[in-house]
Write a protein that binds this DNA or RNA. Structure first.
Length: 576
DNA sequence: GCCGTTTTCGGCCCGACTGTTTTCAGTCG
């Protein structure tokens, strides 16, 4: 039983209660608790065993009791009863834009509709028109919404969304009357997948309508879903929804903060402001009761006024950043410029397209001092994995390169398969010749969580294993992670003094940022690895830096910020 | 459901937009 299971349970209870039209504050308490448990840096099972759940802010008597029962017995009758009381299709109906719990409940109570398919059929038969609060327009929008749910996933990969947002922004920022403009939302917070794009513009009020109009009629727009005086929402041809908000320039910092979110962070911030006698919204901070605006030149000013240090957007998830900012204990997040190199890159030897020399040259362009090459091992036939003989050829080439290149070092690494039985794909005699060994699962995904966890931990125990590669094997929006007890692997890595990579490929971003803090607290060093298969791929480390920052990691927590000499020393100490 | 420098009950963030209404409820972020 780990925190992910508990968080998932609480999340679902929240949703079910929502569908039952329960007290919205009760609903929020469950969703809040899910997020809090998810972000826990302490060991949940220990907290339960010691009866310390109540000491967590947001976990009261009721939740502590339910969590304890679930952790101890693996079951929660309260949840099971709740689940049984509602038809299973209702939850997926929440995905339809414009349909919330109230309307879904009305549809279920009066028309007995409990699945998307039934709803679609009822719309075609005009059966929604008789319902109070529903009309012809709503029926049309529901059909459109069903279409949208089926056609597009609601989430988009970070690079796809970023590209679409920058395309919109570059046009909008050039419009007449635009003073400041920027991207907010989950993109600015560097989430691993993106729901929609938020663009913010400041301009004189007289210019706002033209800016809104230009946005709504942009060539990337498929259709407009809302258009008001200060705000518009559109659906892009790429399948992504985008929102634009236009405000006047003195409101820009407040709107930027508001529009960056997260929603939960905003709620907590407003609640804090209120305690300080200040009303906070997207237009400003207002001293109550006079409602007098307290001006701020930028976002930094807002935090300063509320008596806290500046919270970088990546941390704004209401996962402890507000208390830390008040106490002046925010981490100094790692930055892209702190990196001096990276590990886990592929070359022509296996499934990469560039040579060792080309990869090293590209790394130098990024002002790096070293590069780790980690081609596939012999069992990875699909990726042209290297056998021991080819490994030796590559070592010679790297030695020759290092012999002539001043001020730049190539490390000899390997991405060695973790075989189904938990042994590694090279004998120790070969492994001992590498500077470092990335161990990854590339086969036999469909085993039980217990077996997969045992398999990886056994591999990690090998004295030559340096770091775990893409721990869960997930491919965002396309392949679920294989079952593995992440917490148990982190604990084992901490025990053995090993590392866990942050695979920076934008499809992976694995280790997930939600686990980074826990790993850091356990004293684990996390390398940021691009899993590059060509020279351009090296730049993917930037995505990994986003993950590290979201995971509260500082320079000292990331192996890539070490000098080549420090890296070498660390590798040696692990393999002794 | 949770919480408390207004502390065991009565609050709980705040505003824009839509579609249905004719003053507002529901949804969204």
């Amino acid at each position: 039983m780990n925190k992910k299971d508990v968080a998932h349970l609480l999340e679902e209870i929240g949703t079910l209660l929502e569908l039952k039209n329960e007290n919205p504050f009760k609903v929020r308490a469950y969703h809040n608790a899910a997020r809090i448990i998810n972000g826990l840096i302490e060991n949940l099972e220990e907290l339960v065993a010691n009866g310390q759940l109540r000491s967590i802010k947001g976990i009261g008597e009721g939740l502590a009791e339910k969590i304890t029962e679930f952790v101890r017995t693996g079951r929660l009758p309260y949840y099971e009863e709740l689940k049984k009381s509602l038809p299973p299709g209702l939850e997926e109906m929440l995905a339809i834009p414009g349909l919330g719990p109230k309307r879904i409940k009305a549809l279920y109570d009066t028309l007995d509709i409990s699945m998307i398919g039934e709803l679609e059929y009822a719309c075609h038969e005009n059966r929604l028109l008789d319902l109070e609060g529903f009309g012809i327009k709503m029926q049309e929008n529901i059909l459109k919404g069903i279409e949208q749910v089926r056609r597009h996933s609601e989430k988009h990969l970070f690079p796809t969304a970023l590209e679409a947002a920058e395309s919109l922004l570059s046009e909008i920022s050039r419009l007449k009357g635009v003073i400041r403009s920027g991207i907010g939302g989950s993109l600015r917070r560097r989430k691993e997948v993106i729901g929609d794009i938020d663009i913010l513009v400041s301009a004189r009020p007289a210019e706002a309508p033209a800016i809104i109009e230009a946005f709504a009629s942009h060539p990337d727009v498929e259709h407009v879903t809302a258009k008001g005086e200060t705000k518009s929402s559109v659906h892009l041809k790429s399948g992504i929804n985008a929102d634009l908000r236009v405000i006047n320039d003195k409101e820009y910092p407040f709107a930027l903060h508001y529009f960056t979110g997260s929603k939960e962070h905003n709620i907590a911030m407003r609640s804090l402001a209120k305690k300080r006698g200040i009303k906070m919204n997207e237009y400003g901070l207002f001293r109550e009761p006079s409602d007098k605006l307290i001006p701020c030149a930028d976002e930094e000013g807002i935090f300063r006024l509320l008596g806290m240090s500046y919270i970088p957007p990546e941390l704004r998830e209401d996962m402890g950043e507000i208390d830390a900012a008040i106490a002046g204990r925010l981490p100094e997040l790692v930055e892209n410029n702190d990196l001096r190199g990276t590990f886990h890159c592929h070359t022509k030897y296996s499934d990469g397209v560039n040579t060792v020399g080309q990869m090293a040259a590209a790394a130098r362009v990024l002002s790096w001092e070293y590069l780790g090459i980690a081609d596939h091992s012999q069992s990875a036939a699909y990726a042209n994995g290297l056998d021991a003989a080819r490994v030796k050829t590559q070592w010679k080439e790297i030695d020759a390169f290092n012999g002539t290149s001043k001020g730049f070092r190539v490390f000899k690494g390997t991405e060695t398969d973790i075989l189904p039985d938990g042994t590694l794909d090279f004998p120790d005699k070969v492994l001992s010749g590498f500077d470092y060994v990335v161990i990854s699962v590339h086969s036999k995904f469909k085993i039980s969580e217990a077996d997969m966890t045992k398999r990886i931990i056994k591999a990690l125990k090998n004295k030559y294993a340096t770091m775990v590669g893409h721990l869960t094997g997930r491919l965002l929006l396309s392949r679920e992670p294989y079952p593995v007890d992440v917490q148990a692997v982190i604990d084992a890595a901490a025990d053995y003094g090993k590392m866990i990579e942050i695979n920076a490929h934008p499809l992976r971003l694995d280790l997930d940022w939600r686990w980074c803090r826990y790993a850091k607290e356990k004293g684990i060093l996390l390398p940021i690895n691009p899993d590059a298969h060509n020279t351009d791929g090296l730049r993917d480390t930037w995505y990994g830096v986003g993950t590290a920052r979201k995971g509260w990691l500082e320079k000292k927590d990331v192996l890539n910020t070490f000098t080549a000499a420090q890296v070498e020393k660390r590798f040696e100490s692990i393999h002794q």
